[in-house]
């Protein structure tokens, strides 16, 4: 769509600009401030240059948290994307009460506050009162996410898949619904198999929405905080200490402003990079065949 060339647009976006600037630029400047100074107290600070950055970049616990984070995000994508597409394919295609009910039920986990998600899964997996925990323990396998790092990971992955696969389903389903009936009719005349329909019609048509889903899921799992905080608190040990949890530990728990500031900036830059990728994808969706 052609747009009017007019700088009065700035007048319209000014309120948004001011509010977001207030809550984004000032805090970011504060973080920069932390990252290059050693702050002892009010008025007592010395300039330390890049020292905090060096310390942060060589911090082995940060490296561990980063690898843990990447492993977590990677596993999440590997499980959620195929599962989401598969479930979307089983949803009713015709509009109607059935389709609406399915949509609502599928989307329900997305609307639950993140801390309650953690609570639900504590209640569900505890060996004494949880349905899942008790069932597994009754089978003779001892399962306790507060004691074993592996069990904590399994519980977290289950929770994450349970919580966010609906997003992939919703997006894939929206992509499927936008495919005209004529495509399927043509495929039926050609005697195409279900797999051929999926490969040559459905998957290409879903490419745009699936890219969005992939990037959204990556970003959000990369920033995960509340659910593991409630469920495991980063433990046992450091087994589930992801980047955000580690950052909050440094910043609020130990009050190490310098390292926290440097860490924050590095974290923010990584996110910015993916954000740019995401932006390019979003702008191009709807221009090609994917809509």
């Amino acid at each position: 769509m052609k747009k009017w060339q007019d700088n009065k647009g700035w007048l319209f976006i000014l309120p948004v600009f001011l509010i977001v600037a207030f809550s984004a630029i000032i805090p970011l400047m504060t973080v920069v401030n932390y990252s290059i100074q050693d702050i002892f107290g009010p008025g007592q600070r010395i300039f330390v240059g890049t020292e905090w950055f060096k310390e942060t970049l060589t911090d082995p616990r940060l490296h561990e948290a980063l690898w843990r984070q990447l492993l977590f995000s990677g596993l999440v994508l590997l499980i959620e994307m195929p599962l989401g597409i598969a479930i979307a394919l089983t949803m009713p295609t015709k509009k109607g009460l059935g389709a609406s009910l399915c949509l609502v039920l599928v989307a329900l986990p997305l609307l639950i506050p993140w801390n309650v998600i953690g609570t639900i899964w504590i209640i569900f997996t505890r060996p004494d009162i949880g349905l899942m925990g008790a069932l597994i323990n009754n089978m003779g396998i001892s399962f306790d996410h507060t004691a074993s790092g592996l069990h904590a990971w399994i519980t977290l992955m289950l929770m994450e898949v349970w919580h966010w696969t609906p997003l992939v389903i919703l997006l894939a389903y929206a992509g499927l619904r936008s495919i005209p009936e004529a495509y399927y009719q043509a495929a039926r005349i050609d005697g195409a198999s279900a797999w051929a329909i999926f490969k040559y019609i459905q998957l290409p048509k879903m490419r745009g929405v699936l890219t969005i889903a992939l990037l959204l899921r990556f970003m959000d799992s990369f920033l995960i905080y509340a659910e593991p905080f409630v469920l495991t608190g980063g433990g046992p040990g450091n087994a589930t200490t992801f980047l955000s949890i580690y950052l909050v530990k440094i910043a609020v728990g130990q009050f190490d402003l310098g390292p926290a500031g440097a860490f924050s900036l590095i974290y923010f830059l990584i996110v910015l990079l993916f954000c740019y990728l995401f932006y390019q994808v979003l702008l191009n969706v709807g221009k090609g065949e994917a809509s």
């Binding site: 809550s23 805090p27 973080v31 955000s244």
Partner: peptide, 16 residues
């Protein structure tokens, strides 16, 4: 604006 939707909340915690 988009970058702020994606920004890690943990980064902004202390400055906020």
């Amino acid at each position: 604006l988009l970058t702020n939707r994606m920004a890690p909340a943990a980064v902004f915690l202390l400055p906020f």
